[in-house]
Computed example of a mutant assay.
Amino acid sequence: MSQQAEDTRPFAPACERNRGPILEVLREHLPARVEVFEIASGTGQHAVHFASRWPELRWQCSDLPERLPGIQAWLAEGDPQQLPASLPLDALHGPWPARTYDAVFTANSFHIMPWAGVEAVFKGLTGRLKPQGQLIVYGPFRLQGRFVSASDAEFDASLQARDESMGLRDLEAVDALATRAGLVRRARHAMPANNHCVVWQREA
């Protein structure tokens, strides 16, 4: 949907552009009846779009406390059985939910949070994923230490100028965190605008 002039909900144009390709990846890797925990839900647009097209999907949003009102404004558009109230979560400090999920998803977060935050995400997965559960991450990555495009290099430089703790992550370094967390990479999908959707799975 396009945001109307009177609509005061937070709005991310990137969500409108990437939600279709992301949904295709989710459908490829997840079962029809699935419960997903999302880290750093942003506006909540992804959750509403995915749930509206996936009747057996239950999607649990989370984000920093100050972002929850904006997310709730979007979730009010959907079915509360599919889209329960968003949970407060700071990846570095918690609190992590005391339950397990079929999958954990996050989009455009690893290059924004500090590297310690990325490490905290993988530590937080302990006890969050069911056996054979999956972690699905969307966003830009460096591959083998190299940017995949000049625009990615420029984007990384702009992030570093804002905050030196930000920046595109080396996929191989993230793979190492996944391995230590008991996950193995199952797929990497090339996505629009030089992004990637990477799927890791918990080993039995």
Rank of each mutant, 00 (worst) to 15 (best):
R202F: 01
V121H: 07
R186E: 15
A5I: 14
D7Y: 01
Q72R: 05
C197V: 11
V184N: 11
R185S: 11
K130D: 09
A187L: 08
V36W: 00
P88Q: 10
N195I: 01
T100H: 02
A193W: 01
Q60I: 04
R180T: 15
R146D: 12
F50N: 08
E16C: 10
A107H: 06
F37S: 08
I22G: 02
A47H: 02
A153W: 00
P21Y: 07
G124V: 11
T179I: 13
D79H: 02
R146I: 04
E56R: 14
Q60D: 08
E6Y: 11
L87T: 14
L83F: 00
F155M: 01
P97M: 10
P10C: 07
A98E: 15
G117K: 05
Q60P: 05
G124C: 09
R58V: 15
Q160K: 15
L92A: 13
R53T: 12
E28F: 07
R180S: 15
P192S: 05
R186I: 09
P13I: 08
H46R: 07
F105V: 12
I71E: 03
P31T: 04
A157K: 14
R58G: 13
V121G: 09
G78C: 10
T179A: 14
S109G: 08
V137H: 02
A157E: 14
P65S: 13
V48L: 11
C15S: 14
A190T: 12
F110K: 02
A120N: 10
Q144R: 14
A176C: 08
E66Q: 14
W200F: 10
R33Y: 03
F155W: 00
M113R: 05
L68W: 00
R9I: 05
L92S: 11
M113Y: 01
P131L: 10
G139E: 08
M166H: 02
V48Y: 00
V184C: 12
D7N: 05
E77K: 10
R9S: 05
P131T: 09
V104E: 02
A150L: 15
P84E: 06
F122Q: 09
R19C: 13
G124H: 01
F50R: 04
G127Q: 12
C15N: 14
P84F: 00
T126R: 15
A73R: 07
Q132G: 09
R186M: 12
L159Y: 01
A103N: 10
P10E: 04
S62D: 15
F11V: 06
L68P: 07
G124K: 06
R53D: 13
P65F: 04
V199I: 09
Q45E: 09
L89G: 11
R162G: 14
A153K: 02
P131H: 05
A120M: 11
A98C: 14
E119N: 12
W54C: 06
M113L: 12
N194S: 05
C15P: 03
T179N: 08
P192L: 04
R180H: 13
R9V: 04
G139Q: 07
H93L: 13
I136C: 11
F147K: 01
L129W: 00
R162P: 11
R188P: 00
H29Y: 08
W54R: 07
Q144E: 15
E119R: 13
E172I: 10
L23I: 02
Q82A: 14
F110Q: 06
E24G: 06
G127H: 07
R142A: 05
D163W: 01
S2T: 12
E28P: 05
R67S: 11
V184D: 10
L23K: 05
